[in-house]
Each structure stands twice: as structure tokens, then as C-alpha cells.
Computed example of a mutant assay.
Amino acid sequence: MNEIRQSLHFLSEDLLQKIEDTASIKDIPKNTEILREGQFVKVIPIVLSGLIKVFSRFKEKELLLYYIRPNEGCIMSFAASLKNNPSKIHAITEENTRVLLLPVDKVNGWIQQFPSINTLFYEQYNLRYSELLDTISHVIFDKLDQRLYNYLIEKSKLTKQNPIKISHRQIANELGTAREVISRVMKKLEIERKVQQHTNSIEIKEL
């Protein structure tokens, strides 16, 4: 249980003990759906290692909202669980991921008994709010070639990969556009020598 204490070191000893007694740790393979829109939240995930992608879906299109990195939790799951509302987002593992699962029925009681747990979720609110503002700003003000290049750089940093194993269709889904558009813009970035496309991956040339 040392990994719980390392990730949640700022919590009180009494609360850490309760988490160790009631929460569970699970290893989830890459590309596993862990939450979908309309599903009621029973556990709140805290990532210990790996990466989770959180996105919304409108008809056939997806829009990337944020990633949950190690030592972070899913604030949208937390918000839905507080009022017992169905989830408004989808979440899927981007890598093999190890998560701490906090049972919702216990978390609601801990909030009253141990105010320090609010630190975790308030920090997540601030982080996600800032990220969503950045996303909105990029969508409104940035040209697609700049959005795409910034997206690839961020993806490379998160996954610690370059080249990145990703398809044009996946990129299009996460940026909320069409595959054909991404293919055209990717070719422009390649002509500008910012990226190089391989058979199953994309290499960023100016990192």
C-alpha cells in the first residue's frame, strides 16, 4: 500500500488508513473503456501509473477534454457521484494503467469527516478548468495546423514517445474534425518539416 501513501501523502493518517481498508487497486489494460456517458459512477479513479483519456462524444464525433495523469483523479466522475447523476463523459485507458478506486459511498462520508480530502478534488477542479479554457481558446483562435502540432507535442510528452503510434482517424476524433482534414493538414506539417509520417506512426521533428 506504499503507492497509495505516496500518491495521497497530503491526507491525514486516519483517512489514509480508511482508504487502504476500503479502496481497491486495479491494473487496467490499454484501450479499455472505464466509464461511458449515461453510466452511474460507483468508484472514483485515482491514477497511480499510466494514462486515462477523458472525452465527450457528439453523434459520431469525439472531443478530447483532458488526460488523467499519475497522482490525479477524474473530477467529472467526482462531480457526477456527489449528486448521483449519470456520467456526461467517456473515459478510456491510453496505456496500461494502474488505478486506485475510491468507492463513492465512502467518499461522500469522508468529505464530511475528513475535510483534507477536498484538497485533492479542488486542485483537480482548478487544473481541469484551466485546461478547458486552453482548449476553448485553441479551438476559437488557433488555426488547425497549429492545434494539430501542439496536440502532437502534448501527446508525445504524455506518452513519452516520439514517434507516436497514432492514426489520422484517432487524431481527428480527439480534435473533433474529419480524418480527411487531418490528413491534409498533416501533409502541410510534413512539407514544413515539423513532422515525418511513417507507416504506423508520426515523428515530431522539432522537439
Rank of each mutant, 00 (worst) to 15 (best):
Q6E: 11
L8H: 01
S12F: 07
E13R: 13
E13M: 12
D14P: 10
L15A: 06
L16G: 09
K18Y: 10
G38D: 06
P45W: 00
P45M: 00
V47T: 03
G50L: 00
V54R: 02
F55S: 09
F55M: 05
R57F: 01
F58R: 13
K59C: 08
K61D: 14
E62K: 04
E62H: 02
L63G: 06
L64M: 13
L65E: 02
Y66Q: 08
I68W: 05
R69Y: 11
P70N: 05
P70L: 02
P70Y: 01
E72T: 07
G73W: 01
G73F: 03
S77E: 09
F78S: 06
A80M: 03
N85P: 07
E95H: 01
N96H: 08
T97L: 05
V99S: 02
V99C: 10
L100V: 07
L101N: 03
L102A: 06
D105Q: 11
D105R: 09
K106C: 10
N108E: 04
G109N: 12
G109I: 00
W110T: 03
W110I: 02
I111L: 15
F114G: 07
F114H: 13
S116Q: 12
I117D: 08
L120I: 13
F121C: 05
F121S: 03
F121N: 05
E123N: 13
Q124F: 04
Y125H: 12
Y125I: 14
Y125W: 09
S137A: 13
F141D: 07
F141R: 07
F141T: 06
D145M: 06
L148P: 01
E154H: 09
K155F: 04
K157E: 11
L158F: 11
N162K: 08
N162H: 02
P163I: 03
I164N: 03
I164A: 05
K165A: 12
R169P: 04
R169N: 10
N173H: 13
E174P: 07
L175V: 07
E180P: 06
E180M: 11
R184D: 10
R184K: 15
K188R: 08
K188P: 00
L189F: 06
L189Q: 01
E190D: 12
K194E: 11
K194G: 05
H198N: 14
T199N: 13
N200L: 10
S201E: 08
K205C: 13
K205H: 03
L207M: 12
